[in-house]
Simulated assay, not measured.
Amino acid sequence: MKLFYITSGYRRPIDILDNALIKALIAAGYDTTFFLTNRRPLTELIPAIREHAPDLVITLCGPKSHLPITIVHQIRSLGFHTAVWFVDDPYAIDNALEVAAAYDTIFTIDSGCIPYYKAHGCKEVFHLPLGTDLDIFKPYPVHPSYSTDVCFIGTGYKNRLDTMQEMLHYLPPSTRVHLIGHFWEHVDWSRGVRPQLRSKWINFTETPRYFNGAKIVLNLHRSEDDRYLDKNRTGAPAHSINNRTFDISACQAFQLIDYRADLSTYYEPDKEIVGFQSPKEGAELIMHYLNQQEEREAIAARAIARTQREHTFLHRVDRLMSTLALV
């Protein structure tokens, strides 16, 4: 099968997903042409598709589509099958719904969004979670500066700020906590643990160093109704886990995650991953597992094995292509 892949047009962090998917398509052996939208003008896109005459044209879509609907319609009018993978659901689903019906086949990273796409006239809609890149996310020794009891990497959206502030209030003051990302400096940390903050974006090469240096890696999802981006006025629920779940597990790090409805589909709770449903429960689990090294390591070992078996981008490409073969 001949494929034509159009990149999302985004830089970080979506370009990391573009790169991982491109690597997976190459590794899977598909005859794929890549159109890099941040390096070539869109006026060259249709001629390039005509020249290569692919069986499938596929693109990745972040918070907002960089591919105009008129171009998608033009591609379909030429007889080429089109597919899009929306990778910021449900947080930007309002934007996604503006363009989704233009494509033949829709893939969404969150199962809770499927009914909303179908309600907007999309007939072929499938859940396809993101995966991890084992070339980047893997276990290895790190410098002592990355060593800590607990770490979290991510933007401090309101629900995360509130959860973390309450959680750290319950922990002993001696607990070493690293918080990496924007907005964490806006919290009053005078009660409970005072975390070490790094209020900046870090690139994908440094992220696994923190995962490998922490005894416990926290994974807090964004709220489905977060008002920072404010592009889920549709009200689509968040059921699925984020791609960071797979990245953390790929580093053989012990992961403590807030529950999502689909969690048990991908990892066995308390065997491969540990979940919590309130800040107090999260703090209690942190205190428990900080003193249980063997238990942490056993859970992390099972998690990396599951990830390597089922949750890489190569696995996602296989699932994507097998799904398309049936439609």
Rank of each mutant, 00 (worst) to 15 (best):
Gln293Tyr: 12
Ser264Arg: 14
Ser278Ala: 10
Ala301Leu: 05
Thr323Met: 11
Tyr289Ala: 07
Glu310Ile: 05
Glu310Gln: 08
Gly282Ile: 10
Thr323Tyr: 13
Arg316Lys: 01
Leu324Val: 08
Thr307Leu: 06
Ile286Tyr: 04
Arg309Thr: 13
Ala303Leu: 03
Gln308Asn: 13
Arg306Val: 03
Asp270Thr: 05
Gln277Tyr: 09
Glu297Ile: 14
Ala283Pro: 06
Phe313Thr: 00
Met287Leu: 15
Leu290Thr: 03
Arg306Glu: 02
Tyr267Asp: 05
Tyr267Trp: 09
Gly282Cys: 06
His315Leu: 02
Leu263Phe: 05
Thr307Met: 07
Glu272Asn: 04
Tyr289His: 09
Leu285Gln: 00
Leu290Gly: 09
Gln293Ala: 14
Gln292Gly: 10
Met287Tyr: 15
Ser278Thr: 12
Ser264Phe: 08
Ser322His: 15
Gln292Asp: 13
Glu268Cys: 13
Glu284Thr: 10
Glu268His: 08
Ser322Met: 14
Ala283Gly: 11
Asp270Ile: 12
Val317Lys: 01
Ala325Cys: 12
Pro269Thr: 08
Met321Cys: 01
Leu263Lys: 02
Tyr289Trp: 07
Gln292Phe: 14
Phe313Arg: 02
Thr323Gly: 08
Ser278Glu: 09
Arg296Thr: 03
Ala325Asp: 13
Leu285Gly: 04
Ser322Tyr: 06
Gly275Tyr: 15
Pro279Val: 04
Arg316Asn: 07
Tyr289Arg: 03
Ile304Asp: 04
Glu272Thr: 03
Thr312His: 01
His315Cys: 02
Leu290Ser: 13
Phe313Trp: 05
Tyr267Asn: 05
Glu310Ala: 12
Arg316Gln: 02
Pro269Ala: 00
His288Ala: 10
Thr323Ser: 10
Ala301Phe: 03
Glu281Ala: 07
Val317Thr: 05
